[in-house]
Design a protein around this nucleic acid. Structure first.
Length: 114
DNA sequence: AGTATGACATATA
DNA sequence: ATATATGCCATAC
């Protein structure tokens, strides 16, 4: 398995329970900025039996990446709700993990930093 | 090698 | 809110 995959898996595992993160945010946190697509691809590589909160990963706008009504979609909704995350029409409100930092930075015109 | 596609993101209209 | 347009990276054909 490629080292990138491991970092991605680790980043996903790092998402706190009851919270969600976007693909781009996961990629960045894995030290792979700009590789959001790779995250989605790697999540498809998840090996059965490994405990990974894949369902906490959503699109940047908070929408679930699966087609509505599909198996994966319903599963993800169920798992998220089981953790207390509110899901409406296949989307959740992005909270403190991710989006906020960018918005603050933009509002204040701050240079990039962590 | 070139093209198409995807569990994506950002910008613009 | 929807719709294109680009950029992006890894696979598949």
């Amino acid at each position: 398995m490629k080292p990138e995959y491991r970092r991605i898996f680790r980043a996903v595992s790092d998402i706190p329970r009851g919270r969600v993160a976007s693909y781009g945010q996961v990629a960045a946190r894995a030290g792979l900025p700009g590789r959001a697509r790779m995250v989605g691809r790697v999540l498809g590589y998840r090996t059965p039996g490994m405990e990974l909160p894949w369902y906490r990963v959503l699109r940047a706008d908070g929408r679930i990446a699966f087609p509505p009504g599909s198996q994966g979609f319903r599963k993800q909704v169920e798992l998220l709700r089981r953790e207390g995350v509110e899901v409406r029409e296949g989307r959740v409100r992005m909270r403190d993990f991710g989006h906020a930092a960018d918005l603050d930075r933009q509002l204040w015109g701050m240079p990039d930093e962590e």
